[in-house]
Computed example of a mutant assay.
Amino acid sequence: MTERLPLFPLGTVLYPGLVLPLNVFEERYRRLVADLVAGEEPFRFGVVAIRDGRDVAPTGVDQGSQALAGLGPDPAHALFPVGCVAEIASVEQRKDGGYDLIATGTTRFQVESFDATGPYLTAEVERLPEAAGDEAAVLAQAVERLFRAYQKRLAGARESSVTGLQELPDDPMVLSYLVAAASVLDTGDKQRLLTAESAADRLTAELALLRRENAVLAKLPSLPAVELTRQAFNPN
């Protein structure tokens, strides 16, 4: 069964359970938020990531205007087909007419069709089920160990402290999304983690990605160098 959602294209991937702050100041997205809050709660919209190689605004600010302007005549070519429903937890209208809002990712969806004829992009979407998959608990333990090592190496590259790290969740599904959100990966890798069919599949992919990232961080002294050379570096 499909439903229609207004869409907010972003240069990042939103996962279920993760928080998304947005500063909305462009007119079409003011209209989107105004239409949502004029209706009944819960206020929901869809977040879809823009494919790599397009010029978008930084994460956390009003990326929508630049995003939509660069999508071209067919959003299906510019946007990934799997996104995440965002539910607004708080919204405040500023004096300039824009909005500061905080939303939380809730459910993944598959886009069935886009509609760019209105004041902002909408889509017919179908919610995707969540499954733990085989050996999810065992995989989660392995991912947690690698992720802890990754956090320490990443903090070292940034010359920051890892003191006060919060406890990681026991639920393999929740852990899989938290690791996906907290890892420094390109949009393509993050999108592949979002589209994994089960937590076990996502955790398996994260094992490979964390091994790769740990190898890179172990070889390179600083985070900018990591980001600049990651694609060219092929660890053994």
Rank of each mutant, 00 (worst) to 15 (best):
130 E>C: 06
97 G>R: 14
81 P>D: 09
207 L>R: 12
89 A>N: 06
82 V>S: 05
96 D>Y: 07
52 D>W: 07
8 F>K: 00
185 L>P: 00
187 T>K: 12
76 A>G: 15
69 A>E: 15
14 L>K: 06
209 L>E: 02
95 K>E: 15
230 R>T: 01
189 D>F: 03
102 I>N: 02
12 T>G: 13
150 Y>L: 03
214 N>D: 09
81 P>M: 09
124 E>M: 14
184 V>R: 04
146 L>Y: 03
84 C>E: 01
95 K>T: 13
205 A>S: 10
43 F>Q: 05
51 R>G: 11
29 Y>L: 05
82 V>G: 04
100 D>V: 10
166 Q>N: 12
187 T>D: 12
193 L>P: 01
193 L>E: 03
68 L>I: 14
26 E>A: 06
234 N>C: 04
115 D>H: 06
37 V>H: 02
200 A>I: 02
186 D>G: 14
51 R>A: 12
206 E>W: 00
49 A>L: 04
41 E>T: 14
130 E>G: 07
66 Q>D: 14
149 A>M: 01
167 E>D: 15
28 R>V: 04
25 F>I: 08
108 R>N: 06
44 R>H: 10
116 A>E: 10
218 A>E: 11
159 E>V: 05
78 A>T: 01
236 N>P: 10
84 C>D: 05
158 R>S: 10
191 Q>A: 05
47 V>S: 05
119 P>V: 09
38 A>M: 08
6 P>L: 10
53 G>P: 10
11 G>D: 11
58 P>M: 06
124 E>Y: 10
2 T>I: 13
156 G>D: 12
210 L>P: 00
46 G>E: 01
62 D>V: 12
218 A>F: 04
225 A>T: 11
70 G>N: 15
111 V>T: 11
131 A>K: 04
102 I>A: 00
194 L>P: 02
190 K>R: 15
69 A>G: 15
124 E>R: 13
164 G>E: 01
221 P>T: 01
75 P>I: 02
104 T>N: 10
43 F>R: 05
111 V>E: 00
35 D>T: 01
124 E>L: 13
186 D>P: 08
169 P>Y: 02
21 P>N: 14
208 A>D: 11
60 G>E: 11
66 Q>N: 09
45 F>S: 05
9 P>E: 02
14 L>P: 08
180 A>L: 00
134 D>V: 12
57 A>S: 14
152 K>Q: 09
153 R>T: 03
53 G>W: 06
81 P>W: 01
156 G>N: 11
215 A>K: 04
26 E>C: 05
198 S>P: 08
148 R>E: 02
133 G>Y: 08
25 F>S: 09
169 P>C: 04
8 F>T: 02
118 G>K: 10
100 D>G: 11
214 N>Q: 11
48 V>G: 02
222 S>K: 09
25 F>N: 02
223 L>I: 01
105 G>A: 09
18 L>D: 06
152 K>H: 08
30 R>N: 03
89 A>I: 09
223 L>V: 00
69 A>L: 12
53 G>A: 05
1 M>H: 14
82 V>L: 09
82 V>E: 14
201 D>I: 07
22 L>I: 13
161 S>Y: 09
64 G>A: 14
119 P>E: 15
196 A>K: 01
34 A>S: 14
217 L>G: 00
48 V>I: 07
74 D>A: 14
207 L>T: 12
177 Y>G: 05
219 K>A: 12
100 D>I: 09
54 R>D: 10
181 A>K: 04
116 A>D: 13
